[in-house]
C-alpha cells in the first residue's frame, strides 16, 4: 500500500519532470528560431550580428543610462532576450556627451563612439501622409527636439502647392547626419493611427 503510494508520487514526479524538460526544449527551439526584426540598439552598436555575438546581457549599459532609456529585450525577441533595446516613443536616447553606456560595456559590443556623429542607431523616417507639417500646419516639434538641430533635421519651407499665400514648413531628415536617437519620435504630436515619425534601426 505504502509502496504503491510512493510509486504513484514518483511516477507523477517523473511526468512533471518530463513536461518541464519538454517546455525547456520548446522554449529553446523558439528562441533560436525566432528572428524578430532588429530592434533599436544603444549608441556604439555596430550591426545586429556583431552585437548579438558580443553582448552577454550583463545590463551595465542599462545601469549607466541616466535617462533609463535602455531596457532588457522581452521574451518575444528570441535569442536576443535580455539584450539592451530602446523604445524611443517612451524614452529616447539623449546622446550624452560622454556616452556612459558605451563606456560601461565590458565586452565592446558597444564601441567606437567618441562624438555624437559616430553614433549609428538608425535613421528617422517621416510618414508624410500623417505629419501635420506636410498638411500645412505649423508644428516643427521634431525639428526642435532634435539634439542635432539644423543638421539631422532641417525645415524646408516652401509655398503650398497651388496656393499663392500659404506656406509649408516641412521637416527634412538628413540621412547622413541623423543618428537615430529617437527624440523626434518621443516628442511627435501625432499618435493616431501611428506616430508620424519612426526610426529605422541601423
Amino acid at each position: 500500500m505504502l509502496y504503491g503510494e510512493r510509486g504513484g508520487v514518483l511516477k507523477f514526479g517523473g511526468v512533471i519532470a518530463g513536461c518541464a524538460a519538454l517546455a525547456v526544449v520548446a522554449d529553446g527551439i523558439f528562441r533560436v528560431s525566432t528572428a524578430e526584426a532588429a530592434p533599436l540598439r544603444p549608441p556604439g552598436y555596430q550591426g545586429e550580428s556583431d552585437f548579438l555575438s558580443l553582448c552577454i546581457k550583463c545590463g551595465k549599459c542599462m545601469e549607466s543610462c541616466p535617462y533609463l532609456a535602455l531596457r532588457p529585450a522581452p521574451a518575444q525577441y528570441g535569442a536576443a532576450v535580455g539584450t539592451p533595446i530602446l523604445n524611443v516613443r517612451e524614452q529616447a536616447c539623449r546622446l550624452c556627451e560622454d556616452f556612459p553606456c558605451v563606456n560601461a560595456c565590458p565586452t565592446h559590443a558597444l564601441r567606437d563612439v567618441e562624438q555624437r556623429s559616430d553614433v549609428n542607431m538608425g535613421k528617422a523616417v517621416i510618414d508624410e501622409d500623417l505629419c501635420i507639417s506636410f498638411k500645412g500646419m505649423r508644428c516643427e516639434v521634431c525639428y526642435r527636439a532634435c539634439p542635432l538641430i539644423d543638421t539631422a533635421i532641417t525645415i524646408d519651407f516652401r509655398h503650398r502647392e497651388g496656393d499663392g499665400i500659404h506656406a509649408i514648413f516641412a521637416p527634412q531628415i538628413s540621412d547622413e547626419d541623423c543618428v537615430g536617437c529617437g527624440l523626434c519620435v518621443e516628442r511627435c504630436v501625432v499618435s493616431d493611427p501611428t506616430v508620424a515619425i519612426r526610426i529605422e534601426p541601423a
Binding site: 525547456v24 545590463g59 545601469e63 532588457p72 522581452p74 521574451a75 535580455g82
Partner: peptide, 13 residues
Amino acid sequence: VLGSAAGAVLLVA
C-alpha cells in the same frame, strides 16, 4: 536587478 526575462523558463523548469 534589471527585469530581464532571459532564462526564466529554464529556471522554473
